[in-house]
């Protein structure tokens, strides 16, 4: 068994003439917290889309848990334990926060048509379990007061929290967060960062795209820098911070 949870080889995606992703070899280890950074349009979200199968690559291979998922469907890789969030939050607007979470955690069997018609006592018990778990997560993320609100009524930051909570309902092995801190106020962002760190400590492998450099440097064990679709640097936060290419392409030379 290798220590690699996710690996991509020779992964390329172009839009028209534009090379959005062009990665020769990149892998992510179990239990590591990795951040992917890079300028706007660097291909970070496209990379997420390819790995989670929401987009089809031009060429290349993707392995998750040593399984080739190159041609897999999004829901199938999700069932393997790869859960991603979206940069533009995708919550179920006209469902309550609680329903958002319970739907996420619900098993295929529990969701089935016939199970739903007969509605046995064991399925009621299962639903109760989901509800308890959902409340635990809501408390943890400080949104339990909103449990009965429609998700569309949440603020942008709260939606980010809901989406994170919804992912956690699935007990992910690999959690891919696309800008989890965007639009979250500084105080909450700090809490959220703490929370992400805790999840990592609990053994969830985390891959995070984030523009908040301070946050990234603080919690990441490893940083990957993308620019124009290519990996221009990777390594510990310190290494990356001092890398000239990175400073030039992304961090800027100014003494910010």
């Amino acid at each position: 068994m290798s220590n690699k949870l996710l690996e991509v080889k020779n992964l390329k995606k172009t839009f028209g003439g534009l090379k959005a992703v062009d990665i020769e070899n990149l892998s992510f280890n179990k239990n590591e917290l990795t951040s992917v950074i890079g300028p706007n349009g660097a291909g970070k979200t496209t990379f997420f889309d390819l790995v989670s199968r929401f987009q089809q690559q031009d060429i290349g291979e993707i392995y998750f848990k040593d399984k080739k998922i190159t041609k897999s469907q999004p829901y199938k890789v999700s069932r393997l334990g790869l859960i991603r969030t979206f940069q533009l939050t995708k919550v179920f607007d006209r469902m309550t926060v609680l329903e958002n979470l319970m739907f996420s955690g619900s098993s295929i069997k529990n969701d089935s048509f016939f199970q739903s018609i007969i509605s046995t006592s064991s399925s009621k018990k299962y639903e109760k379990g989901l509800k308890d778990k959902a409340f635990e997560i809501m408390k943890d993320l400080n949104i339990e007061k909103m449990s009965e609100s429609y998700a569309r009524e949440l603020s942008g930051g709260q939606k980010k929290l809901l989406e994170l909570g919804r992912s956690l309902m699935k007990n992910p092995e690999l959690l891919m967060l696309d800008e989890p801190l965007a639009g979250v106020n500084p105080k909450l962002a700090e809490d959220l960062l703490e929370k992400i760190k805790n999840l990592s400590d609990q053994g969830i492998t985390i891959l995070m795209v984030e523009h908040n450099i301070e946050a990234v440097m603080k919690i990441s064990e490893r940083v990957v820098v993308l620019a124009e679709g290519q990996v221009i640097a990777e390594g510990s936060p310190q290494d990356v911070r001092n890398n000239n290419k990175v400073i030039e392409a992304y961090l800027g030379t100014a003494d910010e």
């Binding site: 829901y75 999700s78 859960i83 607007d93 006209r94 739907f103 529990n110 919804r166």
Partner: peptide, 23 residues
Amino acid sequence: SPWGRALRAVREDEDAVRALGKN
């Protein structure tokens, strides 16, 4: 029921449904 909840989720956002492992 959970089935109805799943359909409403599909109505709201299919991509999110997929990302959560549902067909």
